[in-house]
Design a protein around this nucleic acid. Sequence first.
DNA 1: GCGTCTATGTTTAGATA
DNA 2: GTATCTAAACATAGACG
Lengths: 230, 230
Amino acid sequence: MTRKKVNLAFIANDSARKATFKKRKKGLMKKITELSTLCGVDACAVVYSPYQPHPDVWPPDPRAAQHVVTQFKRMPEMEQSKKMMNQESFIRQRITKAAEQLKKVQRENREKEMTELMYKCLMGRGGVQGLGVGELNDMGWLIDERLKEISKRIDEGLKKGTGGAVAEKKAEVVDLGGGVERQQHWPFAEWMGSTSAGEEIMLQFNEGNNQNQNHNNNNAAVMWSNAFFH
Amino acid sequence: MTRKKVNLAFIANDSARKATFKKRKKGLMKKITELSTLCGVDACAVVYSPYQPHPDVWPPDPRAAQHVVTQFKRMPEMEQSKKMMNQESFIRQRITKAAEQLKKVQRENREKEMTELMYKCLMGRGGVQGLGVGELNDMGWLIDERLKEISKRIDEGLKKGTGGAVAEKKAEVVDLGGGVERQQHWPFAEWMGSTSAGEEIMLQFNEGNNQNQNHNNNNAAVMWSNAFFH
DNA sequence: GCGTCTATGTTTAGATA
DNA sequence: GTATCTAAACATAGACG
């Protein structure tokens, strides 16, 4: 016997479920690609896999979906070259500007999405009940990664917007015990906006063994970035 | 003859392409649902359909995917009831707060995504070359819809954050000709952040026949909202 | 646990109404 | 354009190494 009709319910058996997951995810991704190519349409899928720390996103580089905007951006100049500065082309110009602004927002959104997914993944991993010290530490170093990236960006001169302000903020420190005390900031609070009571949320996670914390920590962050449009 | 091997390339024939699109989209959505139920996993697909003004999102209510966070939020209180205010539960508390902040951000992101999609859809529709006065007007009323929604929210007392400031901003007016002149604001510029040169981008689209513009305009906005998490 | 195989269930291209 | 039909193409459950 090879195959019976699929019972559309949660597969209880762990290994069978994982096998099915892998197969069907692959199939799904293929279908997405096919739909895109066959019909010339932008399509994207996100799967919050319990088997990977980060969600699967397809296509791997969703920014490809932005070709339309890019194409559009190139248009107005051609229109303008005719020196036909009528109302329509004027609006085109305006929209182009707005599209540029939009790109900026998208960049910001990416960062927020990353934060969101970071939380989701860590919280979802192994069920809610099982969120112990290990997971908290994982969360801590993931946050540290994001933190470093942001600090780097601030240093690189993108001090406009929230960046500069964040750099001046004083951080509340939560010491998880042991280890060398490191003072770091929590710029996420800035992104998230202040609470309704005006309270500032700042966090720091210190690990007991944080001496070599700066080594070998980039992979996840890079994966993350790759998964989301960068 | 019934079927030949699919040629994985853009289908030139318009009607054939649309037919394939409909069939395959349906199949894709089914597959997503199956993957979710069979493997107990959150999955979501977005398809930027050229045949509908708004993108297809599946599952129709992606906020269901947030059950994990919701569940998590309920946990810390139980831990705390034991008055065991150790480091771990303290951190849990902190994370809960952060998760609340996160929800706020997600709401903001939804709005930004809506703006993004709005642009994308309208720009993609009918190809870039075909973006004429008709499309510009469509964009105009779509923007008006968003605008009304925001104004309403501002009036309802959510004056914290950007809302209040935006309400005071003066708008640059682009008159598309004819019609009654209406003074309105462009809060999107606020969302998008100011330009690198500190320039403010403000837009207004006036239609020739804008007398009954306030009627029959809610469907799209509602659809949009429903499609994205609300 | 993973990759490969293959019989069968499922999807869908093309035809037709 | 939409709805239904049908057989070929395709995806994949279960078995095996």
